[in-house]
């Protein structure tokens, strides 16, 4: 076997002097990377299985599944509406109102609509709504399904001939997709309104008609299509990731916290990836 060169030994010694242990870091990073790949592969497989069930059994047991979807929409949408409206008001006052005032100061008030559409409609709206759903409902889903798995309720469903993916996952996927989309729309509307309110309080000479006309002119049909796809996509990501983390392994009490953290981190990474894809689409479209 070839001896390590003198230069590589000295580099290793130097790193150790400053508290670095190259081999252990490589092992740690490699281990993390392998776990991340395994989790990603499991998530994709789980997502495809869920999609397969939705496609092949769209109307199966609808009398049971539809009320469950309704429950998920109420839980992830209706009950979170006050929180989303509060965030929208805060964001409108803190950010959007200031932005409108600044644009006026530099004489770029004609760009208000374009900036609003780029900042609020395309980016902030779906992301804020998705994070609210993830933190308030997604984390609960991990614990709920993890407990169900640990208590053997998944096997109990299987024993009754009830497909656990159809009964537990599909309603959450559809419910969270619809809820995230709905919350996004409400968030955007509330942010735009509260932003204008702040600008009005700052005596910005911009009439409501002019403000909303500029926004309407900046919006294209593509914004509506991509906004819907993006917001629903975020909802699907939350449902798939949290259901996967909850159902993949039976959770012990000590596993709940790290598994929930993994679900939040994995969802956030998936949000960023999906967001990047949509930015590319916006750029390609023009």
């Amino acid at each position: 076997m070839a001896e390590p060169s003198t230069s590589s030994l000295s580099v290793a010694r130097l790193l150790r002097t400053f508290g670095f242990a190259p081999r252990s870091y490589i092992v740690a990073v490699g281990g993390w990377l392998l776990r991340a790949i395994a989790t990603g592969r499991g998530l994709v497989a789980f997502g495809l299985i869920s999609l397969g069930v939705m496609v092949t059994r769209p109307t199966a047991s609808s009398a049971v599944v539809r009320p469950l979807i309704g429950e998920q929409i109420a839980r992830a949408g209706l009950r979170l509406l006050p929180m989303v409206l509060f965030l929208a008001a805060a964001l409108g006052f803190a950010v959007i109102g200031q932005m409108v005032a600044l644009l006026r100061q530099v004489g770029a008030q004609d760009l208000v609509g374009t900036v609003m559409v780029a900042a609020v409609v395309r980016e902030l709206g779906p992301l804020v709504a998705a994070f609210v759903v993830l933190l308030r409902v997604g984390t609960g889903t991990v614990i709920e399904l993890g407990s169900a798995r640990a208590l053997g309720e998944v096997e109990a469903l299987e024993a009754l001939g009830v497909d656990p993916v159809h009964y537990l996952v599909v309603p959450r996927v559809i419910g969270m997709a619809v809820a995230t989309l709905a919350l996004t729309v409400y968030f955007i509307l509330a942010t735009l309104c509260s932003g204008y309110l702040f600008a009005f309080l700052q005596d910005v000479p911009l009439t409501p008609g002019e403000y909303f006309r500029q926004i309407a002119l900046a919006l294209t049909w593509l914004d509506f299509v991509l906004l819907a796809l993006k917001a629903a996509g975020f909802g699907v990501i939350i449902a798939v990731v949290t259901c996967y983390q909850g159902l993949a392994y039976p959770l012990q009490l000590s596993d709940v916290s790290p598994t929930t953290t993994v679900a939040v981190v994995a969802s956030t990474i998936a949000f960023v990836v999906l967001d990047a894809l949509f930015i590319v689409m916006y750029l390609l479209a023009g």
Partner: peptide, 24 residues
């Protein structure tokens, strides 16, 4: 018996029937 805690006893017993018969 691993009953589902979010359902009543009657709903637990009725779940396989409603699911497979697709009824309320």
């Amino acid at each position: 018996g691993r009953l589902f805690d979010h359902l009543t006893v009657a709903q637990n017993v009725g779940l396989p029937l409603t699911y497979h018969r697709n009824c309320g």
